[in-house]
Amino acid sequence: MRAEHALAQQLEALLIVADEPLSAIALATATDRPVREVRRALDGLIAEFDGADGGAAPRGFELREVAGGYRFYVRESLDPLVADFVQQQTPAKLSQAALETLAVIAYRQPVSRGAIASIRAVNVDSVVRTLLGRGLITEVGQDPETTATLYGTTEALLRHLGIGDVSELPPIAPLLDDGSEGFDHETL
């Protein structure tokens, strides 16, 4: 293998694992090569990834010089594709309010929106809409007396939790404060 190809491979390997842009000096130090030689190899990699050498199509990534260093980036034309993929792979985290509402539904299902609001002592309309939209809860029927919509958890939630059934949820009573804490030492 020619020395310039070995250097290009070394630079690629270093740049792939880097969290931040690496300067030509840092790359030269890591590869024990002169800075001029490293810059030439970096220019060659940039041209190769852009498809400038021999008419090859540009790669899906590019090597850019930014903030005084070099780093790999997704080619700008592919940003929408990658953004959609990343959003699907890493769903947004639930807020504390959503987690609390989800717990009430999981442990009390089937349960109405009014009962959830009563337990949480806050309006839960938007949180319930969010949980419905994410597919974590679903409408499971209507209360025969009030005709209120009843909610329950979905298979998707069970998969996220890694359980097969809500009966596998941990008992909640040991996790709750019994309300007596802080009163033992008080005198009236």
Results as ranks from 00 to 15, higher is better:
Ser95Thr: 02
Gly54Glu: 07
Gly164Ile: 01
Val122Pro: 01
Ala106Arg: 01
Ile163Gly: 03
Lys93His: 14
Ser23Ile: 15
Ser112Cys: 03
Leu176Asp: 05
Ala26Met: 15
Arg159Asn: 10
Glu20Gln: 14
Leu78Phe: 12
Leu158Asp: 03
Ile105Met: 04
Thr154Trp: 07
Val128Ser: 02
Ala106Phe: 07
Ser118Thr: 14
Ala3Arg: 11
Leu94Ala: 04
Thr130Trp: 13
Gly133Cys: 13
Thr90His: 13
Val17Thr: 14
Leu131Arg: 00
Ala3Cys: 09
Tyr107Asp: 13
Ile105Glu: 00
Leu131Ile: 05
Glu62Gln: 09
Ala6Met: 14
Thr149Leu: 03
Val66Asn: 06
Arg40Thr: 00
Ala26Glu: 15
Val86Leu: 11
Asp184His: 12
Gly182Cys: 13
Glu4Lys: 05
Arg120Ser: 00
Gln142Tyr: 09
Ser167Asn: 14
Val38Asn: 00
Gln9Trp: 15
Arg75Pro: 04
Ala121Tyr: 07
Gly152Arg: 01
Val74Asn: 14
Val66Pro: 10
Gln142Ile: 08
Pro170Ala: 06
Val127Thr: 10
Ser180Gln: 10
Val66Phe: 12
Glu37Cys: 00
Leu157Ile: 00
Asp32Asn: 15
Ala115Arg: 14
Gly162Phe: 04
Glu181Met: 07
Ile116Lys: 01
Asp84Pro: 11
Arg36Lys: 08
Ala18Trp: 10
Ala30Cys: 02
Glu12Tyr: 10
Gly179Tyr: 05
Thr90Met: 11
Asp84Leu: 11
Ala67Trp: 03
Arg75Phe: 08
Leu136Ser: 06
Glu155Gln: 13
Glu12Trp: 14
Val82Ser: 00
Arg134Tyr: 02
Glu37Asp: 05
Gly69Asp: 13
Ser23His: 09
Gly182Lys: 10
Asn123Thr: 11
Ile25Ser: 14
Asp165Ser: 06
Gln142Met: 10
Leu158Val: 03
Glu155Ser: 10
Pro170Phe: 09
Val104Asn: 01
Leu15Thr: 08
Gly164Trp: 06
Val74Lys: 10
Ala97Val: 04
Ala92Ile: 06
Val124Cys: 12
Arg40Tyr: 04
Ser23Gln: 05
Leu131Val: 13
Glu186Val: 02
Ala148Lys: 00
Ala26Arg: 13
Ala148Cys: 02
Gly164Leu: 01
Leu94Gly: 07
Gly179Ser: 11
Pro34Trp: 08
Tyr70Pro: 03
Leu99His: 15
Phe183Ile: 05
Ala47Trp: 14
Ala117Trp: 01
Arg120Ile: 03
Ile172Pro: 10
Gly135Asn: 09
Met1Glu: 15
Ala52Pro: 11
Ala92Lys: 08
Gln88Pro: 10
Ser126Glu: 15
Tyr70His: 07
Gln87Glu: 11
Glu181Tyr: 08
Thr101Lys: 07
Ala13Ser: 15
Pro80Met: 03
Val17Ile: 14
Glu168Ser: 04
Tyr107Ser: 08
Phe72Ile: 01
Asp19Pro: 03
Glu145Ser: 06
Ile46Trp: 12
Phe61Asn: 12
Gly54Leu: 10
Leu158Phe: 09
Leu27Ile: 08
Leu7Val: 06
Phe85Lys: 13
Leu78His: 09
Glu20Ile: 06
Leu15Met: 12
Pro91Ala: 08
Ala97Pro: 05
Leu150Ala: 01
Pro110Thr: 08
Gly141Ile: 07
Glu100Met: 02
Ala148His: 02
Ala30Glu: 05
Asp50Trp: 14
Ala30Asn: 04
Val124Ser: 09
Tyr107Glu: 11
Ser180Leu: 15
Pro174Trp: 03
Gly135Arg: 04
Pro144Ala: 09
